[in-house]
Design a protein around this nucleic acid. Sequence first.
DNA 1: TAAGATTTGTTCGTATGTATC
DNA 2: GGATACATACGAACAAATCTT
Lengths: 255, 255
Amino acid sequence: MAETPPADPKSRGRRSRPLRVADAIKDWVVEHGLQPGDRLPGEAELIEQFGMSKGTIREAMRLLQAQGLVETKTGPGGGSFVGEVTRERASALLANYFYFRDVSINDIYQVRIALEPELAASLAGKLTDAQLAELEAIMEHYAEPARSAEEERQQHVASLRFHARLSDFGNNALLGFFIGFMAQILTDLTVYKQLYTAPNHDLWQRGRLHQIDLIAALRTGDAAKAHAVMRSHMEMAQSLMDIQEAEVMKRFIAE
Amino acid sequence: MAETPPADPKSRGRRSRPLRVADAIKDWVVEHGLQPGDRLPGEAELIEQFGMSKGTIREAMRLLQAQGLVETKTGPGGGSFVGEVTRERASALLANYFYFRDVSINDIYQVRIALEPELAASLAGKLTDAQLAELEAIMEHYAEPARSAEEERQQHVASLRFHARLSDFGNNALLGFFIGFMAQILTDLTVYKQLYTAPNHDLWQRGRLHQIDLIAALRTGDAAKAHAVMRSHMEMAQSLMDIQEAEVMKRFIAE
DNA sequence: TAAGATTTGTTCGTATGTATC
DNA sequence: GGATACATACGAACAAATCTT
Protein backbone atom coordinates (compact mmCIF):
# COMPACT_ATOMS: atom_id res chain seq x y z
CA MET A 1 0.00 0.00 0.00
CA ALA A 2 1.11 3.55 -0.40
CA GLU A 3 2.09 5.81 2.43
CA THR A 4 -0.35 8.48 3.31
CA PRO A 5 1.30 11.75 2.50
CA PRO A 6 1.41 14.06 5.50
CA ALA A 7 -0.74 17.12 5.18
CA ASP A 8 2.26 19.24 6.01
CA PRO A 9 5.43 17.97 4.37
CA LYS A 10 7.67 19.49 6.97
CA SER A 11 6.09 17.47 9.75
CA ARG A 12 7.93 14.29 8.83
CA GLY A 13 9.23 13.30 12.19
CA ARG A 14 6.44 14.52 14.42
CA ARG A 15 3.62 12.50 13.02
CA SER A 16 1.07 11.59 15.64
CA ARG A 17 1.05 8.15 17.16
CA PRO A 18 -2.16 6.97 15.51
CA LEU A 19 -0.67 7.94 12.14
CA ARG A 20 2.50 5.98 12.81
CA VAL A 21 0.57 2.97 14.06
CA ALA A 22 -1.65 3.04 10.97
CA ASP A 23 1.38 3.13 8.70
CA ALA A 24 2.99 0.29 10.60
CA ILE A 25 -0.12 -1.84 10.21
CA LYS A 26 -0.27 -1.09 6.50
CA ASP A 27 3.34 -2.10 6.09
CA TRP A 28 2.66 -5.24 8.08
CA VAL A 29 -0.25 -6.16 5.81
CA VAL A 30 1.87 -5.63 2.71
CA GLU A 31 4.88 -7.50 3.99
CA HIS A 32 2.81 -10.49 5.02
CA GLY A 33 0.78 -10.44 1.84
CA LEU A 34 -2.49 -10.45 3.74
CA GLN A 35 -5.65 -10.75 1.71
CA PRO A 36 -9.12 -9.25 2.18
CA GLY A 37 -10.85 -10.97 5.05
CA ASP A 38 -7.64 -11.87 6.82
CA ARG A 39 -7.55 -11.15 10.52
CA LEU A 40 -5.54 -8.39 12.08
CA PRO A 41 -4.32 -8.49 15.69
CA GLY A 42 -6.97 -7.52 18.20
CA GLU A 43 -7.00 -4.29 20.17
CA ALA A 44 -5.46 -5.89 23.22
CA GLU A 45 -2.62 -7.37 21.24
CA LEU A 46 -1.92 -4.12 19.40
CA ILE A 47 -1.90 -2.23 22.69
CA GLU A 48 0.79 -4.58 23.91
CA GLN A 49 2.76 -4.69 20.65
CA PHE A 50 2.97 -0.94 20.27
CA GLY A 51 2.99 -0.15 23.95
CA MET A 52 0.30 2.46 23.49
CA SER A 53 -3.06 3.14 25.01
CA LYS A 54 -6.33 1.81 23.77
CA GLY A 55 -7.47 5.19 22.56
CA THR A 56 -4.40 5.66 20.40
CA ILE A 57 -4.78 2.24 18.83
CA ARG A 58 -8.44 2.85 18.16
CA GLU A 59 -7.71 6.17 16.47
CA ALA A 60 -5.24 4.36 14.25
CA MET A 61 -7.90 1.85 13.30
CA ARG A 62 -10.30 4.67 12.40
CA LEU A 63 -7.67 6.11 10.08
CA LEU A 64 -7.46 2.77 8.30
CA GLN A 65 -11.21 2.27 8.37
CA ALA A 66 -11.86 5.58 6.64
CA GLN A 67 -9.67 4.44 3.78
CA GLY A 68 -11.55 1.18 3.50
CA LEU A 69 -8.46 -0.81 4.41
CA VAL A 70 -9.88 -2.47 7.50
CA GLU A 71 -13.28 -3.44 8.82
CA THR A 72 -14.09 -4.24 12.42
CA LYS A 73 -16.68 -6.46 13.99
CA THR A 74 -17.65 -6.82 17.63
CA GLY A 75 -18.30 -9.98 19.53
CA PRO A 76 -16.61 -13.38 19.60
CA GLY A 77 -14.76 -14.06 16.38
CA GLY A 78 -14.83 -10.33 15.84
CA GLY A 79 -11.91 -8.02 15.49
CA SER A 80 -10.29 -6.13 12.66
CA PHE A 81 -10.00 -7.58 9.19
CA VAL A 82 -8.27 -6.56 6.02
CA GLY A 83 -10.87 -4.90 3.82
CA GLU A 84 -11.08 -4.61 0.10
CA VAL A 85 -11.71 -1.02 -0.91
CA THR A 86 -15.05 -1.00 -2.67
CA ARG A 87 -15.70 0.88 -5.87
CA GLU A 88 -18.28 2.97 -4.06
CA ARG A 89 -15.87 4.03 -1.37
CA ALA A 90 -13.08 4.78 -3.83
CA SER A 91 -15.52 6.91 -5.82
CA ALA A 92 -16.59 8.73 -2.69
CA LEU A 93 -13.05 9.45 -1.58
CA LEU A 94 -12.10 10.66 -5.03
CA ALA A 95 -15.18 12.85 -5.29
CA ASN A 96 -13.98 14.67 -2.19
CA TYR A 97 -10.88 15.69 -4.10
CA PHE A 98 -13.03 17.49 -6.64
CA TYR A 99 -15.29 19.13 -4.08
CA PHE A 100 -13.32 22.37 -3.92
CA ARG A 101 -12.27 22.24 -7.55
CA ASP A 102 -14.34 23.37 -10.44
CA VAL A 103 -15.30 20.52 -12.69
CA SER A 104 -17.83 21.35 -15.33
CA ILE A 105 -20.09 18.98 -17.18
CA ASN A 106 -18.05 19.79 -20.24
CA ASP A 107 -14.92 18.63 -18.45
CA ILE A 108 -16.57 15.32 -17.72
CA TYR A 109 -17.64 14.93 -21.32
CA GLN A 110 -14.20 15.72 -22.64
CA VAL A 111 -13.00 12.65 -20.78
CA ARG A 112 -16.02 10.52 -21.61
CA ILE A 113 -15.61 11.25 -25.31
CA ALA A 114 -12.06 10.01 -25.12
CA LEU A 115 -12.69 6.94 -22.96
CA GLU A 116 -16.09 5.47 -23.72
CA PRO A 117 -15.47 4.80 -27.41
CA GLU A 118 -12.21 3.12 -26.44
CA LEU A 119 -14.08 0.89 -24.03
CA ALA A 120 -16.76 0.05 -26.58
CA ALA A 121 -14.20 -0.89 -29.18
CA SER A 122 -12.29 -3.11 -26.79
CA LEU A 123 -15.49 -4.91 -25.81
CA ALA A 124 -16.72 -5.65 -29.34
CA GLY A 125 -17.23 -9.37 -29.76
CA LYS A 126 -16.19 -10.06 -26.18
CA LEU A 127 -19.51 -9.88 -24.37
CA THR A 128 -21.52 -12.93 -23.39
CA ASP A 129 -25.16 -13.31 -24.34
CA ALA A 130 -26.08 -12.77 -20.71
CA GLN A 131 -24.21 -9.48 -20.60
CA LEU A 132 -25.77 -8.28 -23.82
CA ALA A 133 -29.16 -9.29 -22.47
CA GLU A 134 -28.54 -7.29 -19.30
CA LEU A 135 -27.72 -4.21 -21.30
CA GLU A 136 -30.87 -4.64 -23.34
CA ALA A 137 -32.84 -5.05 -20.14
CA ILE A 138 -31.55 -1.70 -18.90
CA MET A 139 -32.57 -0.14 -22.21
CA GLU A 140 -36.13 -1.27 -21.57
CA HIS A 141 -36.32 1.45 -18.92
CA TYR A 142 -36.37 4.01 -21.68
CA ALA A 143 -38.12 2.13 -24.43
CA GLU A 144 -40.80 4.81 -24.50
CA PRO A 145 -40.26 8.57 -24.56
CA ALA A 146 -40.57 10.29 -21.21
CA ARG A 147 -43.80 12.07 -20.50
CA SER A 148 -42.64 14.15 -17.58
CA ALA A 149 -39.54 15.73 -16.13
CA GLU A 150 -39.41 13.08 -13.45
CA GLU A 151 -39.60 10.28 -16.00
CA GLU A 152 -36.93 12.01 -18.02
CA ARG A 153 -34.68 12.01 -15.02
CA GLN A 154 -35.27 8.35 -14.29
CA GLN A 155 -34.49 7.48 -17.87
CA HIS A 156 -31.30 9.45 -17.76
CA VAL A 157 -30.19 7.65 -14.62
CA ALA A 158 -30.97 4.34 -16.31
CA SER A 159 -28.94 5.26 -19.35
CA LEU A 160 -26.01 6.14 -17.10
CA ARG A 161 -26.38 2.74 -15.50
CA PHE A 162 -26.05 1.31 -18.99
CA HIS A 163 -22.61 2.89 -19.28
CA ALA A 164 -21.60 1.91 -15.77
CA ARG A 165 -22.46 -1.73 -16.42
CA LEU A 166 -20.64 -1.67 -19.71
CA SER A 167 -17.54 -0.44 -17.89
CA ASP A 168 -17.83 -3.37 -15.48
CA PHE A 169 -17.77 -5.87 -18.33
CA GLY A 170 -14.31 -4.93 -19.52
CA ASN A 171 -11.28 -6.52 -17.94
CA ASN A 172 -9.47 -3.24 -17.48
CA ALA A 173 -10.15 -2.23 -13.89
CA LEU A 174 -8.58 1.18 -14.37
CA LEU A 175 -10.65 2.10 -17.40
CA GLY A 176 -13.72 0.63 -15.75
CA PHE A 177 -13.26 2.72 -12.64
CA PHE A 178 -12.74 5.98 -14.48
CA ILE A 179 -15.85 5.49 -16.60
CA GLY A 180 -17.90 4.26 -13.66
CA PHE A 181 -16.78 7.23 -11.59
CA MET A 182 -17.99 9.70 -14.19
CA ALA A 183 -21.30 7.89 -14.53
CA GLN A 184 -21.65 8.07 -10.75
CA ILE A 185 -21.00 11.80 -10.66
CA LEU A 186 -23.48 12.45 -13.43
CA THR A 187 -26.03 10.24 -11.71
CA ASP A 188 -25.71 12.10 -8.43
CA LEU A 189 -26.00 15.33 -10.31
CA THR A 190 -29.11 14.18 -12.09
CA VAL A 191 -30.75 13.14 -8.89
CA TYR A 192 -29.82 16.23 -6.90
CA LYS A 193 -30.31 18.98 -9.37
CA GLN A 194 -33.07 19.58 -11.84
CA LEU A 195 -30.95 18.59 -14.76
CA TYR A 196 -32.54 16.95 -17.74
CA THR A 197 -35.96 18.22 -16.99
CA ALA A 198 -37.04 18.93 -20.53
CA PRO A 199 -38.28 15.81 -22.30
CA ASN A 200 -37.19 15.94 -25.89
CA HIS A 201 -38.67 13.32 -28.17
CA ASP A 202 -36.17 13.82 -30.97
CA LEU A 203 -33.11 13.48 -28.75
CA TRP A 204 -34.62 10.52 -26.97
CA GLN A 205 -35.07 8.73 -30.27
CA ARG A 206 -31.56 9.45 -31.51
CA GLY A 207 -30.00 8.38 -28.23
CA ARG A 208 -31.93 5.15 -28.25
CA LEU A 209 -30.95 4.39 -31.83
CA HIS A 210 -27.34 4.94 -30.89
CA GLN A 211 -27.52 2.35 -28.16
CA ILE A 212 -29.31 -0.14 -30.40
CA ASP A 213 -26.58 0.28 -33.00
CA LEU A 214 -23.98 -0.06 -30.27
CA ILE A 215 -25.42 -3.34 -29.00
CA ALA A 216 -25.46 -4.66 -32.56
CA ALA A 217 -21.84 -3.71 -33.12
CA LEU A 218 -20.82 -5.24 -29.81
CA ARG A 219 -22.63 -8.46 -30.70
CA THR A 220 -21.12 -8.82 -34.16
CA GLY A 221 -17.68 -7.80 -32.93
CA ASP A 222 -17.36 -4.72 -35.12
CA ALA A 223 -14.91 -2.71 -33.01
CA ALA A 224 -14.63 0.22 -35.40
CA LYS A 225 -18.39 0.56 -35.58
CA ALA A 226 -18.76 0.33 -31.79
CA HIS A 227 -16.14 3.04 -31.42
CA ALA A 228 -17.84 5.34 -33.93
CA VAL A 229 -21.33 4.85 -32.55
CA MET A 230 -20.23 5.48 -29.00
CA ARG A 231 -18.40 8.59 -30.08
CA SER A 232 -21.50 9.96 -31.80
CA HIS A 233 -23.52 9.09 -28.75
CA MET A 234 -21.14 10.94 -26.44
CA GLU A 235 -20.97 13.98 -28.67
CA MET A 236 -24.71 14.18 -28.82
CA ALA A 237 -24.98 13.91 -25.07
CA GLN A 238 -22.37 16.60 -24.65
CA SER A 239 -24.17 19.06 -26.88
CA LEU A 240 -27.27 18.31 -24.87
CA MET A 241 -25.47 19.22 -21.67
CA ASP A 242 -23.66 22.13 -23.17
CA ILE A 243 -26.17 24.55 -21.84
CA GLN A 244 -25.75 23.25 -18.36
CA GLU A 245 -22.65 24.98 -17.12
CA ALA A 246 -23.62 24.22 -13.62
CA GLU A 247 -21.15 23.53 -10.92
CA VAL A 248 -20.53 19.91 -10.33
CA MET A 249 -19.63 17.72 -7.45
CA LYS A 250 -20.61 20.04 -4.68
CA ARG A 251 -20.83 17.35 -2.11
CA PHE A 252 -18.56 15.05 -0.24
CA ILE A 253 -18.66 11.33 0.09
CA ALA A 254 -16.70 9.27 2.61
CA GLU A 255 -16.76 7.07 5.62
CA MET B 1 -19.55 16.08 0.29
CA ALA B 2 -20.62 12.56 -0.31
CA GLU B 3 -21.66 10.17 2.38
CA THR B 4 -19.23 7.43 3.14
CA PRO B 5 -20.89 4.22 2.10
CA PRO B 6 -21.03 1.70 4.94
CA ALA B 7 -18.93 -1.39 4.40
CA ASP B 8 -21.99 -3.48 5.05
CA PRO B 9 -25.10 -2.01 3.47
CA LYS B 10 -27.42 -3.67 5.95
CA SER B 11 -25.80 -1.86 8.88
CA ARG B 12 -27.61 1.39 8.11
CA GLY B 13 -28.97 2.21 11.48
CA ARG B 14 -26.25 0.85 13.72
CA ARG B 15 -23.35 2.90 12.52
CA SER B 16 -20.86 3.64 15.24
CA ARG B 17 -20.85 7.01 16.93
CA PRO B 18 -17.61 8.26 15.41
CA LEU B 19 -19.06 7.49 11.99
CA ARG B 20 -22.23 9.41 12.69
CA VAL B 21 -20.32 12.35 14.14
CA ALA B 22 -18.05 12.44 11.09
CA ASP B 23 -21.05 12.48 8.77
CA ALA B 24 -22.69 15.22 10.80
CA ILE B 25 -19.58 17.37 10.58
CA LYS B 26 -19.36 16.83 6.83
CA ASP B 27 -22.97 17.87 6.43
CA TRP B 28 -22.32 20.88 8.60
CA VAL B 29 -19.38 21.92 6.42
CA VAL B 30 -21.44 21.57 3.25
CA GLU B 31 -24.48 23.38 4.60
CA HIS B 32 -22.42 26.30 5.83
CA GLY B 33 -20.33 26.42 2.69
CA LEU B 34 -17.10 26.34 4.66
CA GLN B 35 -13.90 26.73 2.69
CA PRO B 36 -10.45 25.20 3.16
CA GLY B 37 -8.75 26.76 6.17
CA ASP B 38 -11.99 27.59 7.91
CA ARG B 39 -12.16 26.67 11.57
CA LEU B 40 -14.17 23.82 12.93
CA PRO B 41 -15.44 23.73 16.52
CA GLY B 42 -12.83 22.61 19.02
CA GLU B 43 -12.88 19.28 20.80
CA ALA B 44 -14.48 20.69 23.90
CA GLU B 45 -17.27 22.29 21.93
CA LEU B 46 -17.93 19.16 19.90
CA ILE B 47 -18.03 17.08 23.08
CA GLU B 48 -20.75 19.35 24.35
CA GLN B 49 -22.63 19.65 21.05
CA PHE B 50 -22.82 15.92 20.43
CA GLY B 51 -22.94 14.91 24.08
CA MET B 52 -20.23 12.36 23.54
CA SER B 53 -16.89 11.63 25.12
CA LYS B 54 -13.57 12.99 24.03
CA GLY B 55 -12.45 9.62 22.66
CA THR B 56 -15.47 9.31 20.39
CA ILE B 57 -15.03 12.81 19.03
CA ARG B 58 -11.37 12.20 18.42
CA GLU B 59 -12.08 9.00 16.51
CA ALA B 60 -14.50 10.95 14.35
CA MET B 61 -11.82 13.50 13.59
CA ARG B 62 -9.44 10.72 12.60
CA LEU B 63 -12.02 9.43 10.13
CA LEU B 64 -12.19 12.86 8.55
CA GLN B 65 -8.45 13.36 8.72
CA ALA B 66 -7.77 10.15 6.80
CA GLN B 67 -9.92 11.45 3.98
CA GLY B 68 -8.06 14.73 3.93
CA LEU B 69 -11.18 16.66 4.87
CA VAL B 70 -9.80 18.15 8.08
CA GLU B 71 -6.42 19.04 9.49
CA THR B 72 -5.66 19.60 13.14
CA LYS B 73 -3.08 21.75 14.84
CA THR B 74 -2.10 21.83 18.49
CA GLY B 75 -1.39 24.87 20.58
CA PRO B 76 -3.13 28.23 20.95
CA GLY B 77 -5.00 29.16 17.80
CA GLY B 78 -4.94 25.47 17.00
CA GLY B 79 -7.86 23.18 16.45
CA SER B 80 -9.46 21.51 13.48
CA PHE B 81 -9.71 23.17 10.08
CA VAL B 82 -11.36 22.32 6.82
CA GLY B 83 -8.75 20.78 4.57
CA GLU B 84 -8.48 20.69 0.84
CA VAL B 85 -7.83 17.15 -0.37
CA THR B 86 -4.48 17.23 -2.07
CA ARG B 87 -3.77 15.54 -5.36
CA GLU B 88 -1.22 13.35 -3.62
CA ARG B 89 -3.67 12.13 -1.05
CA ALA B 90 -6.41 11.51 -3.58
CA SER B 91 -3.95 9.50 -5.65
CA ALA B 92 -2.92 7.52 -2.61
CA LEU B 93 -6.48 6.74 -1.61
CA LEU B 94 -7.38 5.71 -5.13
CA ALA B 95 -4.28 3.54 -5.46
CA ASN B 96 -5.53 1.55 -2.48
CA TYR B 97 -8.60 0.64 -4.50
CA PHE B 98 -6.41 -1.02 -7.10
CA TYR B 99 -4.19 -2.78 -4.60
CA PHE B 100 -6.15 -6.03 -4.64
CA ARG B 101 -7.13 -5.71 -8.27
CA ASP B 102 -5.01 -6.69 -11.19
CA VAL B 103 -4.03 -3.71 -13.26
CA SER B 104 -1.47 -4.42 -15.91
CA ILE B 105 0.81 -1.95 -17.59
CA ASN B 106 -1.17 -2.58 -20.73
CA ASP B 107 -4.34 -1.53 -18.91
CA ILE B 108 -2.71 1.74 -17.99
CA TYR B 109 -1.57 2.33 -21.53
CA GLN B 110 -4.98 1.61 -22.95
CA VAL B 111 -6.22 4.58 -20.95
CA ARG B 112 -3.19 6.74 -21.60
CA ILE B 113 -3.52 6.22 -25.35
CA ALA B 114 -7.10 7.45 -25.16
CA LEU B 115 -6.48 10.39 -22.81
CA GLU B 116 -3.07 11.89 -23.43
CA PRO B 117 -3.64 12.78 -27.09
CA GLU B 118 -6.92 14.40 -26.09
CA LEU B 119 -5.08 16.50 -23.52
CA ALA B 120 -2.36 17.46 -25.96
CA ALA B 121 -4.88 18.55 -28.56
CA SER B 122 -6.83 20.64 -26.08
CA LEU B 123 -3.64 22.37 -24.95
CA ALA B 124 -2.35 23.31 -28.41
CA GLY B 125 -1.83 27.06 -28.62
CA LYS B 126 -2.93 27.53 -25.02
CA LEU B 127 0.36 27.26 -23.16
CA THR B 128 2.34 30.25 -21.99
CA ASP B 129 5.99 30.68 -22.86
CA ALA B 130 6.86 29.94 -19.26
CA GLN B 131 4.98 26.66 -19.35
CA LEU B 132 6.60 25.63 -22.61
CA ALA B 133 9.98 26.56 -21.14
CA GLU B 134 9.30 24.40 -18.09
CA LEU B 135 8.50 21.42 -20.29
CA GLU B 136 11.67 21.96 -22.23
CA ALA B 137 13.62 22.20 -18.99
CA ILE B 138 12.30 18.79 -17.96
CA MET B 139 13.37 17.41 -21.31
CA GLU B 140 16.91 18.48 -20.55
CA HIS B 141 17.06 15.64 -18.07
CA TYR B 142 17.16 13.22 -20.96
CA ALA B 143 18.97 15.27 -23.56
CA GLU B 144 21.64 12.59 -23.74
CA PRO B 145 21.10 8.84 -23.99
CA ALA B 146 21.37 6.93 -20.73
CA ARG B 147 24.60 5.12 -20.06
CA SER B 148 23.38 2.88 -17.27
CA ALA B 149 20.25 1.23 -15.97
CA GLU B 150 20.07 3.74 -13.17
CA GLU B 151 20.28 6.67 -15.55
CA GLU B 152 17.67 5.05 -17.73
CA ARG B 153 15.37 4.88 -14.76
CA GLN B 154 15.93 8.51 -13.82
CA GLN B 155 15.23 9.57 -17.37
CA HIS B 156 12.04 7.59 -17.42
CA VAL B 157 10.87 9.22 -14.21
CA ALA B 158 11.68 12.62 -15.69
CA SER B 159 9.69 11.87 -18.83
CA LEU B 160 6.74 10.87 -16.68
CA ARG B 161 7.07 14.18 -14.89
CA PHE B 162 6.78 15.79 -18.30
CA HIS B 163 3.37 14.23 -18.74
CA ALA B 164 2.31 15.02 -15.20
CA ARG B 165 3.18 18.69 -15.62
CA LEU B 166 1.41 18.82 -18.95
CA SER B 167 -1.72 17.48 -17.25
CA ASP B 168 -1.48 20.28 -14.69
CA PHE B 169 -1.49 22.93 -17.39
CA GLY B 170 -4.92 22.06 -18.70
CA ASN B 171 -7.99 23.56 -17.10
CA ASN B 172 -9.81 20.27 -16.85
CA ALA B 173 -9.17 19.07 -13.30
CA LEU B 174 -10.75 15.69 -14.00
CA LEU B 175 -8.63 14.93 -17.04
CA GLY B 176 -5.58 16.30 -15.26
CA PHE B 177 -6.09 14.05 -12.27
CA PHE B 178 -6.59 10.90 -14.30
CA ILE B 179 -3.44 11.49 -16.32
CA GLY B 180 -1.42 12.55 -13.30
CA PHE B 181 -2.59 9.48 -11.41
CA MET B 182 -1.34 7.15 -14.11
CA ALA B 183 1.97 8.98 -14.30
CA GLN B 184 2.26 8.59 -10.53
CA ILE B 185 1.61 4.87 -10.65
CA LEU B 186 4.14 4.37 -13.42
CA THR B 187 6.66 6.48 -11.54
CA ASP B 188 6.28 4.44 -8.36
CA LEU B 189 6.60 1.31 -10.41
CA THR B 190 9.74 2.56 -12.07
CA VAL B 191 11.31 3.41 -8.78
CA TYR B 192 10.36 0.23 -6.98
CA LYS B 193 10.88 -2.40 -9.60
CA GLN B 194 13.67 -2.84 -12.04
CA LEU B 195 11.60 -1.71 -14.94
CA TYR B 196 13.23 0.09 -17.80
CA THR B 197 16.65 -1.25 -17.06
CA ALA B 198 17.83 -1.75 -20.61
CA PRO B 199 19.10 1.47 -22.16
CA ASN B 200 18.09 1.53 -25.79
CA HIS B 201 19.58 4.26 -27.90
CA ASP B 202 17.13 3.94 -30.77
CA LEU B 203 14.04 4.16 -28.58
CA TRP B 204 15.50 7.01 -26.61
CA GLN B 205 16.00 8.98 -29.80
CA ARG B 206 12.53 8.32 -31.15
CA GLY B 207 10.91 9.23 -27.85
CA ARG B 208 12.83 12.45 -27.66
CA LEU B 209 11.92 13.41 -31.19
CA HIS B 210 8.29 12.81 -30.36
CA GLN B 211 8.42 15.24 -27.49
CA ILE B 212 10.25 17.85 -29.55
CA ASP B 213 7.57 17.58 -32.21
CA LEU B 214 4.93 17.78 -29.53
CA ILE B 215 6.34 20.98 -28.06
CA ALA B 216 6.44 22.49 -31.53
CA ALA B 217 2.83 21.58 -32.22
CA LEU B 218 1.77 22.93 -28.83
CA ARG B 219 3.57 26.17 -29.53
CA THR B 220 2.14 26.72 -32.97
CA GLY B 221 -1.33 25.65 -31.88
CA ASP B 222 -1.62 22.70 -34.23
CA ALA B 223 -4.11 20.59 -32.29
CA ALA B 224 -4.34 17.79 -34.84
CA LYS B 225 -0.58 17.44 -34.96
CA ALA B 226 -0.28 17.47 -31.17
CA HIS B 227 -2.90 14.74 -31.00
CA ALA B 228 -1.15 12.59 -33.59
CA VAL B 229 2.30 12.99 -32.12
CA MET B 230 1.15 12.17 -28.63
CA ARG B 231 -0.66 9.12 -29.94
CA SER B 232 2.46 7.85 -31.64
CA HIS B 233 4.43 8.56 -28.52
CA MET B 234 2.03 6.58 -26.36
CA GLU B 235 1.89 3.66 -28.76
CA MET B 236 5.64 3.46 -28.85
CA ALA B 237 5.83 3.54 -25.09
CA GLN B 238 3.21 0.83 -24.87
CA SER B 239 5.04 -1.52 -27.18
CA LEU B 240 8.13 -0.86 -25.10
CA MET B 241 6.28 -1.93 -21.98
CA ASP B 242 4.52 -4.77 -23.66
CA ILE B 243 7.04 -7.25 -22.44
CA GLN B 244 6.57 -6.15 -18.88
CA GLU B 245 3.45 -7.95 -17.80
CA ALA B 246 4.31 -7.39 -14.22
CA GLU B 247 1.72 -6.82 -11.61
CA VAL B 248 1.18 -3.25 -10.73
CA MET B 249 0.23 -1.21 -7.76
CA LYS B 250 1.18 -3.64 -5.07
CA ARG B 251 1.34 -1.10 -2.36
CA PHE B 252 -0.99 1.08 -0.39
CA ILE B 253 -0.96 4.78 0.09
CA ALA B 254 -2.94 6.79 2.64
CA GLU B 255 -2.90 8.95 5.71
C1' DT C 1 -34.64 -19.15 25.38
C1' DA C 2 -31.04 -17.89 28.29
C1' DA C 3 -26.59 -17.48 30.11
C1' DG C 4 -21.74 -16.87 29.50
C1' DA C 5 -17.63 -15.67 26.87
C1' DT C 6 -15.21 -12.66 23.73
C1' DT C 7 -14.26 -8.65 21.42
C1' DT C 8 -15.02 -3.97 20.11
C1' DG C 9 -17.42 0.45 21.61
C1' DT C 10 -17.72 4.35 24.91
C1' DT C 11 -16.98 7.12 28.96
C1' DC C 12 -14.49 9.79 32.44
C1' DG C 13 -10.67 11.71 34.87
C1' DT C 14 -6.07 12.99 34.61
C1' DA C 15 -1.76 14.10 32.78
C1' DT C 16 1.38 15.53 29.02
C1' DG C 17 2.91 17.86 24.81
C1' DT C 18 3.01 21.84 21.84
C1' DA C 19 2.60 26.23 19.84
C1' DT C 20 1.41 31.20 20.71
C1' DC C 21 1.66 35.39 23.24
C1' DG D 1 10.61 32.31 30.54
C1' DG D 2 6.00 31.93 31.97
C1' DA D 3 1.07 31.79 31.13
C1' DT D 4 -2.41 30.30 28.07
C1' DA D 5 -5.07 27.42 24.92
C1' DC D 6 -5.29 23.92 22.49
C1' DA D 7 -4.69 18.87 20.93
C1' DT D 8 -2.53 14.42 22.40
C1' DA D 9 -2.18 10.42 25.22
C1' DC D 10 -3.03 7.21 29.14
C1' DG D 11 -5.75 3.89 32.25
C1' DA D 12 -9.50 1.89 34.38
C1' DA D 13 -14.07 0.90 34.19
C1' DC D 14 -18.41 -0.10 32.01
C1' DA D 15 -21.58 -0.83 27.82
C1' DA D 16 -22.96 -3.14 23.71
C1' DA D 17 -22.76 -6.51 20.16
C1' DT D 18 -22.47 -11.25 18.84
C1' DC D 19 -21.11 -15.94 18.97
C1' DT D 20 -21.40 -20.44 21.53
C1' DT D 21 -23.48 -23.61 24.52
